[in-house]
Amino acid sequence: MDLKDLYRDIILDHNRHPKNFGQLDPCDSTTHGNNPLCGDRLTLTLRLEGDRVSDIRFEGKGCAISIASASLMTEAVKGKDDLAIKHLSDLVHHMLTAHGETSAPPAELGKLAALAGVREYPARVKCASLCWHALDAALKHRANNLGETAIGCAAVSTE
């Protein structure tokens, strides 16, 4: 396992220059994600049209893996509906936790496949999955009309 498989150029680029960084105001749903283990925090703001995410931004502090993952996620889900996002989220979780897997991730993951190296570093899975858990919570709570929500340690667990 080479470190370069974890810290690929695309990851380092997204860490340095994250896409969709900031907050949408007004927005239709927002979530705070928090990973107490490493002190990572991120806030997602979403605009929704029906069951489609029409716009999304994230803001926060964290390691390169968490920032790049959130940046890549916002690019990947913008314009997609709930069902497509759920599918993508499942694929990402599978890719991140498939320890020992050597085959290439599915092509439909697109740029998100850059995070495949995480699967060899189990301690870092939570860094990469934090934003996806936050997105999941934002979409769920939107459905429940709960408005602003916060997810804590349990919600970012990937066990």
């Binding site: 470190l3 810290y7 301690a123």
Partner: peptide
Amino acid sequence: GVHAHDLGTILDDEGVAVRTGH
């Protein structure tokens, strides 16, 4: 410019075991 967790992983890759976090 380098988060403690990224640093911890790179150090681990070099055989160096340190604590990262709060």
